[in-house]
Design a protein around this nucleic acid. Structure first.
Lengths: 337, 337
DNA sequence: GTGAAAGCGCTAACAG
DNA sequence: CTGTTAGCGCTTTCAC
C-alpha cells in the first residue's frame, strides 16, 4: 500500500532538469551563492516557482549538518507559562528576530516530566541552538543542554559558567530602586511579596529589597513568597494581612502577583494606593489593566527577547557574541504608590 | 577549520560495531521491532547506553519519510494567544497526549505576517501532521495546509470540507443554554458581548443567543463585539453602558471578556451579580478569580486538546479517525448570575 | 561559472 | 533472526 499522498514533492533534481542545469547550480541558487550566472539564476528561479519547490528540510540538515531551527525551551508548567504576560513579551521579542532570519523556532514546554524527552530531542540534532526562557535551580537537565548545542539563557543562570551566554535585567538594582521609591514616598513599614526562591530573578529582587531597607536602617515588615503567580500573590497577601498590622507599602516582585494582591485586599475592603502603597515589577499589560493602575518597575521584556535571539544568531553565525547582556529597569509611576 | 564540536555524535554504525551486529539490527532495536534475538537486543541496548546514542533525526526522517513531529499552528498574535487561558488548556491537553507518544510538538505562532514562512516550513516536510488551534475566516493559508499534511482543526473551520477533521464544542447550544439560563432567572432585557465575527466559535455562540431570545419572543438588548480579549470586553461593556439603560443580564462569550466587563462596570460603581447578571463562557481560571465568581458555560478545553491530539495520532497511524468530534458544554453556576 | 561524485546517518526491502 | 544493498534529497569538495 502506498503511503500518504506525496506532498510539496518537487525535488532538486526535478528543478534542475526543468531549468536545464545541474543539481549543484540549483543548490547554489537556493542557498544564495553569488557564483551563478544571471541566465542560470533566472532559469532556476522560474523552475522553482513553477514547481513550487520547497527544499526538503531533512535532506538539507543531513547534508549540511545544520537544521536552521532553534529551540525555545520553557522550563515551566503550561499554565504558569501562559498565565504570565512576561512570557508573552519574551516570546514575541524572540519571535520577531527569529522570523526575520531564516531560522524557525520550536517551542518546547519542558516541565519536569517531559524533560528527558526534550533533552533527547535536543541531542538528536534537531536544532542548531536553544534559548532557555526561564530558570529554576532545580532544572538540572538544562546544565547538560549547553554541552550539546549553543544556549542563550533568559535571566542569569543559577550557576554562571564562564562561557555561558545570557540576557538579563538588573534585578538586584530593580528591587533596590523599587524599595527606594517607596522609601522616598515616606513609607517606613515596607514588606515584599517575592517570587519563588529557586529562581535567580526572585532571589535578586529580594536581595535588592533587603539591601535598600538595610541601607535605610530598616527591617522588612513582611516577606512572603508569591510564586510569581496571581493566586500565589493573593495567598501571600492574605498571609501578610493575617500576620498583623497592615504595612505601609509593599514591593511585589511581579505585576501578576500584584493583581492577586489587589484581589486579596479588595476582599477586605482595602485598596491599593489608598490603604497601602504597592509597587510591582514587569510593567506588563496587567499593570495598566489594574485599578488603580499599578506603579511598577519596568523591565524591557520584549527587548530582552530580541536580545536573546540576536545573541544566539550571532553565535550560530560565528560572529562574536556578548556573554552577559544586562538591560536597565526604571520605575513607572502610576496610582498605586 | 572544524565545525562546532561534535555533539551526541555516536552513529548507528558505531553502535553496531560495538554491539557486534549490523546496522539493521541496531535500527530494529531502536524502532522496537520484535524480530531481534534477546542476546542481540541486550548487546545493542548496552552499546546505546554506553555511547549515549541518540538517532539523528534528519537522517531518520530522510530515510523513513516521517518526521515524528507535528505542528501546533496558532493563527493568532502572540499577545492574544498568551492572554487567553483558553489556549493554555488547549495546549496542555494536546501536549499531554503528544508527549505520551513518540512525537514531538512544534508550536508555530503564525500571525499573518509570518504565515508564508510557516507554510513553507510545513511544506518543507518538517512535520507529519498539524493541529490548527483556532480559526479565522481570513486565514486563507490554512486552507492550503490540509493539502500538504493531515490537519486537525480546533473548532469547526469556517468552510468544512468533507474530509476535514475537527474537534469542537457545540457553541450554538452553549450560547442557547447560557441565554436560557438567564431567561430562567427571570431576566428579559438581555444583551451579549460576542467574540470577533470572523471566528466560527463567536458566530455560533451569538447565533445560540439570538435563537434562544427569539424562541422567547424577545429582542437582544445589546450586541457588541468584544474581540475575545479583556480590553475588548471592557470597551464593549462601555459601549453598552453608554448606549442607554443597563440591560438586566449579559451573555459574555468568553471569560476573559467578562473580566474586562467587570472592570468597566466597577469603574461606574456597578457590580456583576448585583446590578447586572453576567454569564461567561469557558470556565477558565479567570472565572473563579473574578469577584464575584463568574457564572459561566463550561467548555472542556483540556479535553478538547486531548481529543485533537489523539485524532491526529489516529490519522498518522492509519487508524480510523473521527471527522467531527463535538464536546458538550454545561452551565456552571456561581455568583454573577 | 558549472557539473560529477561522494557522502550525511538512517530505514527498508530483500536474501539468506 | 540477521546482514547486504539501495537509496531518501540535499550539500559540498573537486575538477574542469
Amino acid at each position: 500500500m502506498e503511503l500518504a499522498p506525496v506532498r510539496g514533492t518537487a525535488t532538486i533534481e526535478e528543478v534542475a532538469a526543468r531549468a536545464g542545469v545541474s543539481r549543484s547550480t540549483v543548490s547554489r541558487v537556493v542557498n544564495g551563492s553569488t557564483a551563478v550566472s544571471p541566465s542560470a539564476l533566472e532559469a532556476v528561479r522560474r523552475a522553482i516557482d513553477e514547481l513550487q519547490y520547497v527544499p526538503n528540510r531533512a535532506a538539507r540538515s543531513l547534508a549540511s549538518r545544520q537544521t536552521r531551527s532553534i529551540a525555545l525551551v520553557i522550563p515551566e508548567q503550561t499554565d504558569r507559562f501562559f498565565g504570565d504576560p512576561f512570557f508573552a513579551s519574551i516570546v514575541a521579542g524572540i519571535g520577531e528576530v527569529i522570523s526575520a532570519s531564516d531560522y524557525v523556532m520550536n517551542m518546547l514546554i519542558a516541565s519536569d516530566d517531559a524533560s528527558a524527552k526534550a533533552l533527547a530531542y535536543l541531542r538528536g540534532g534537531s536544532v542548531d541552538g536553544a534559548i532557555v526562557a526561564s530558570h529554576h535551580t532545580s532544572d538540572t537537565f538544562l546544565e547538560r543542554l549547553a554541552d550539546v548545542v549553543p544556549v542563550v539563557y533568559g535571566g542569569r543562570p543559577s550557576r554562571v559558567r564562564p562561557d555561558d551566554y545570557y540576557v538579563d535585567v538588573d534585578n538586584v538594582e530593580g528591587g533596590r530602586v523599587a524599595t527606594g521609591y517607596l522609601l522616598g514616598r515616606g513609607h517606613r513599614r515596607i514588606g515584599t511579596i517575592s517570587g519563588p526562591l529557586d529562581m535567580p530573578a526572585a532571589i535578586d529582587r529580594l536581595r535588592g529589597f533587603r539591601e535598600a531597607l538595610a541601607d535605610a536602617g530598616l527591617e522588612p515588615a513582611a516577606v512572603e513568597d508569591g510564586d510569581f503567580t496571581e493566586m500565589g500573590g493573593a495567598l501571600a497577601m492574605n498571609r501578610i494581612l493575617a500576620a498583623g498590622p497592615l504595612p505601609d507599602a509593599l514591593f511585589v516582585a511581579s505585576d501578576l502577583m500584584a493583581r492577586g494582591a489587589y484581589t486579596a485586599l479588595r476582599e477586605r475592603g482595602l485598596e491599593a494606593g489608598r490603604d497601602i502603597a504597592i509597587i510591582g515589577f514587569d510593567d506588563s499589560a496587567v499593570s495598566t489593566a489594574l485599578h488603580p493602575a499599578l506603579t511598577t518597575v519596568r523591565q524591557p521584556s520584549l527587548s530582552q527577547g530580541r536580545h536573546m535571539a540576536s545573541v544566539l544568531l550571532d553565535i550560530l553565525a560565528g560572529r562574536p557574541a556578548v556573554h552577559a547582556t544586562i538591560l536597565p529597569t526604571e520605575v513607572v509611576e502610576r496610582r498605586s504608590a
